[in-house]
Design a protein around this nucleic acid. Structure first.
Lengths: 194, 194
DNA sequence: GGTGCATATATCAGCAGTGACATATCTCGG
DNA sequence: CCGAGATATGTCACTGCTGATATATGCACC
């Protein structure tokens, strides 16, 4: 997977491992992250497979860079991958796995967990919205016009935002429902006591 | 991660590797899947660590089962895990990575990809809704009352459904926007030609 | 002269996860 | 009697990914 993300980025322009690392987890790719410890070996492997070509570029002030460019073979690989029909990824969501087991912890602890998670998603949502504002500022009316790269970029950003909003809405809903559940328990006990 | 899913399931009742495998990817756990090739070695490892105890249970008709039960140490591990505050998982979504690169394929191919993905998510949504119907049928009014296990189960199911609905809505929206984009391109060319 | 920081590349151990291969029992139908 | 299918457990090679560790340059600041 990682290799296709790299190929897409190098399709725009040649980059070093360090540059790539900043792209992942930065503003451009919302749906893939990678550490340098994964990127450098992958670049080497891709070079060996003929998907990339490397060139050492010295710099006066800074350490020498190894800049990678996509080869015709790399281009073909990327386009072939884009035409495949992958099956659905299986969902792996740690928070939801925990939620499944929340009957094992006190109600207050469960609430705290959900609130914490809601906060994290709100932060990520703000991050995405900042990126969107940035795109709007930089490209203005162009967002509505004819640049395909920008068009697909905006589409994925919209999905990222929709995803975060859904998650946050679920957290809020869950907290309300949990409160109602706790109230019912209370009344249940009161009923038994009375 | 897998180990905590296993511990949660074994907290309810002892199960064999085969039973566990059917639980994952079946109706109960929506947010975690696992193959038997991952489950069996993990069970062995957990037994060695004292989180589980194993017992061979022979059967007249069928091969002998190795049934695992959670130990007190396993219980403590599970509860400690539930109290941790994990950081946000990084999103890895292959479809969105592809979408990012759709400027490299013909517009019809991009549409076909999105429609295909929408269909897959619609199928999964139908699956989740069937599970919810099943829960409603089996438990009826109990869904609104006082069983914590059922309560959290319903909450996670709701999140799964919300997630699928968001994804499907995005696919539909993306297809509309893409059509509008293609129309604009057409008009652009017509303008240039006229 | 020392410390911290950004730049830049690389390796390693270890856990996570996949798909293929392997083996065995018992039942049911042809 | 043979094959298909459910039950049941396991291994293996490979890729994916994380966190830690290592190394080196040059700059700014104290």
């Amino acid at each position: 997977m990682l290799r296709y993300a790299i190929l897409e980025l190098l399709h725009h322009k040649p980059l070093s491992g360090y540059d790539l690392r900043r792209r992942f987890g930065g503003s451009i790719v919302f749906f893939w992250k990678a550490n340098h410890s994964q990127i450098y070996p992958e670049l080497k492997r891709m070079e060996n497979e003929g998907l990339l070509s490397a060139k050492r570029v010295p710099h006066e002030w800074r350490p020498t860079k190894k800049v990678y460019a996509i080869t015709p073979k790399g281009q073909r690989d990327l386009e072939a991958w884009l035409r495949r029909r992958p099956k659905l990824q299986s969902v792996k969501d740690e928070m939801m796995l925990r939620c499944f087991a929340f009957h094992l912890v006190p109600a207050d602890e469960a609430d705290a967990q959900i609130r914490h998670h809601r906060d994290l998603h709100e932060e990520r949502l703000r991050h995405y919205i900042a990126i969107r504002k940035d795109l709007e500022r930089k490209h203005g009316r162009l967002l509505e016009t004819a640049d395909p790269i920008l068009f697909w970029n905006v589409l994925t950003l919209r999905q990222a935002i929709a995803h975060e909003r859904t998650y946050i809405a679920w957290c809020r809903w869950a907290l309300r429902r949990h409160q109602a559940f706790r109230d019912r328990m209370e009344r249940g006990h009161a009923h038994l006591a009375g």
